[in-house]
């Protein structure tokens, strides 16, 4: 009750002054921000952007320190946070490997081992082909795949048995033909392989391929979401993100969104979780964040508490069935 009062007061103070509110709990030493991926990737960029914004706008009294633990497709980072029971000075940013890594490698952890804090955004996936290719729409491409042989069409993606690979298998299922999947280290490499004509298509995130789209090298066919992207500002001379149709409209019955969310170690108190929820609320309100969301055409959904847990539970189920069908589950 008392705690609730304080948080309410804190929220009130935030609205009134928008300066540092009084928290029921605050970090007493530097906070480790674990990135379960290598330096330079999408999750790392987001973590360092957040760190930079916190420094610039002085949102925390204690420093925030980004630590990369990428071993075993991120398993190292998740196990590290799982092991830090009750430690409120450690948070982790997740991508889809929160679900895919334990399923694909058999490393013993599950998202329920961690405490959910907040979903920051969802990353979209777009089907891209080379601009010189004859496919003008997702339907053209799907028809070509259908008409071709198994393994004739080649898809490049990031990592193996992860998001790009799952979408590729689902796409192949929609077409009734197998696609060859070639894994690369990072999204930038993947986009360039497509520009160079070494593969037929990719499912890059918007931010990874946008530069080549604008330069007229790549063509987006459809977005793997149930509704088109909301961003209406022109990206190329003729198109905006919102002009890309959904894959569903083109007969590819596949949706996939990647989680960009925050988790904490198990066994932390609600006050500690609330501190971080509030911190990320304030980060999200900053203009830099809005700009980043638009540049990368993110889906800026923000979820906390039970809604977030429910979302994660559902996503876990989806991953499990998709990966089961694809034969990606570790024996």
């Amino acid at each position: 009750m008392f705690i609730k009062l304080i948080t309410t007061l804190g929220a009130a103070a935030l609205i009134a002054l928008s300066s540092a509110p009084a928290y029921a709990w605050e970090p007493t030493k530097s906070v480790e921000f674990v990135v379960p991926a290598g330096t330079g990737g999408g999750a790392d960029q987001m973590a360092r952007l957040i760190q930079g914004m916190i420094i610039k706008h002085d949102l925390m009294k204690q420093p925030m320190v980004v630590v990369n633990k990428s071993g075993g497709a991120g398993a190292e980072g998740f196990l590290d946070v799982k092991g830090a029971k009750g430690n409120p000075h450690k948070i982790i940013i997740t991508l889809s490997n929160l679900f895919t890594t334990p399923l694909a490698t058999g490393v013993p952890f599950n998202w329920t081992d961690l405490t959910p804090v907040a979903m920051l955004a969802l990353d979209e996936f777009v089907l891209w082909v080379n601009a010189d290719s004859p496919y003008k729409s997702a339907k053209d491409y799907l028809d070509a795949v259908k008409a071709g042989d198994d393994n004739q069409f080649k898809m490049a993606g990031t990592g193996s048995k992860q998001e790009d690979h799952i979408i590729t298998v689902a796409l192949g299922k929609a077409a009734g033909k197998k696609l060859t999947y070639v894994p690369f280290k990072g999204g930038g490499d993947v986009a360039v392989q497509l520009v160079g004509g070494h593969v037929n298509s990719t499912v890059n995130n918007p931010i990874e391929a946008v530069a080549h789209w604008r330069a007229g090298k790549l063509r987006p066919l459809c977005v793997f979401d149930d509704k088109p992207l909301p961003y209406k500002t022109r990206v190329t001379d003729t198109m905006a993100w919102s002009d890309i149709p959904t894959c569903r409209q083109s007969g590819i019955d596949v949706d996939y969104l990647m989680l960009r969310g925050i988790f904490m170690a198990p066994g932390v108190t609600p006050e500690q979780v609330n501190y971080y929820v509030d911190l990320f609320r304030r980060v999200r309100a900053l203009p830099e964040w809005q700009e980043f969301m638009e540049k990368g055409a993110f889906n800026p959904t923000f979820l906390v508490g039970n809604e977030y847990s429910d979302w994660a539970r559902k996503a876990e189920g989806t991953h499990k069935s998709l990966m089961q069908e694809a034969g990606f589950i570790a024996k």
Binding site: T39, G41, Q45, R48, V210, A211, K295, G296
Partner: peptide, 18 residues
Amino acid sequence: AVLLGGLLIWGLQPGPLL
């Protein structure tokens, strides 16, 4: 790779049009 991340964060899009 890290510098590339920096460019994106500053709102610059590396690529042919840069």
